[in-house]
């Protein structure tokens, strides 16, 4: 599904990704771990198309399509979803209108008719229940006044509504208490399927107790330096990252 080859990227003059390779197939969950400043969040930003990142070398394809040439909204319509580390508060934009607009843009792109209000509400209710998202929050302004945990759960709710092919969760676990972590993880586990894939970016092994990955990668200094199964996460928790350098 996702194929990253020899990816180099920089912000201004600083090279951040230095030849990163990653293959993700449908149905898989990949965890990316690594020390601070290794480039984990930068990878997420480059994949989502954040403006200030410049790709200098390499390629990224999603089901054979080059996504690097696409604007962020086109990537989203093709099926890339980034759950933000710090979701943005946008007062005045209602959560539900925002989602409806986004969903219909994506549906139009896929050649589907826009959803009627009734269909949309039905879907919204189902997904709220699925990911245990409070109905009261759905009707508020986008993330405005949400707690850290509520913001992260809203990301998962959006993920459930938009049904992307590839979801990148950028430190979704950070700042979550154990209950919120459980809820978020349950949501993700319910959304896993044969047709989609997840990349989990995290500092902590803790998340991987709840969402069990197929692969764990260690990102260090802009490259993947080690890949293993879920047991690698435990080893990292015990030994830290220094032994890999």
């Amino acid at each position: 599904m996702l194929s990253i080859k020899n990816l180099h990227a920089r912000v201004e003059d600083k090279e951040i990704l230095k030849g990163l390779n990653l293959e993700v197939k449908a149905g898989e969950v990949h965890a990316i771990m690594g020390p601070n400043g290794a480039g984990k969040s930068s990878l997420a930003s480059v994949l989502a198309g954040r403006e200030n990142y410049e790709v200098t070398e390499g390629s990224v394809t999603l089901d054979g399509k080059d996504i690097l040439e696409m604007a962020p909204e086109e990537r989203a319509r093709e099926g890339v979803f980034l759950a933000f580390q710090y979701p943005i508060e946008i007062p005045g934009v209602s959560n539900i209108n925002f989602l409806k607009t986004a969903l219909n843009e994506i549906r139009t792109h896929r050649g589907l008719d826009p959803m009627t209000a009734k269909e949309f509400l039905q879907k919204s209710k189902e997904k709220q229940a699925l990911v245990e998202f409070d109905a009261k929050l759905v009707n508020r302004s986008l993330n405005e006044g949400f707690s850290g945990g509520e913001k992260k759960r809203n990301e998962i709710f959006q993920l459930a509504m938009l049904e992307p092919k590839l979801a990148i969760l950028d430190e979704t676990d950070s700042g979550l208490d154990i209950d919120a972590l459980r809820i978020v993880s349950r949501g993700v586990n319910k959304l896993r399927s044969e047709n989609n894939a997840f990349i989990l970016i995290t500092h902590y092994q803790r998340l991987l107790d709840y969402i069990v990955p197929d692969y764990v990668h260690v990102l260090s200094d802009g490259k993947i330096v080690k890949t293993g199964g879920k047991e690698l996460a435990l080893e990292l928790e015990e030994k830290g990252y220094d032994w890999l350098k």
Partner: peptide
């Protein structure tokens, strides 16, 4: 950053700006 957030959900640039302006004028 807010515009990027909206775009990352599939909303086009122009519509993202419209949403933001409406939100700005909302109160």
């Amino acid at each position: 950053e807010a515009i990027f957030y909206l775009k990352s959900r599939g909303i086009g640039e122009e519509q993202a700006k419209q949403l933001m302006v409406k939100a700005f004028a909302f109160d």
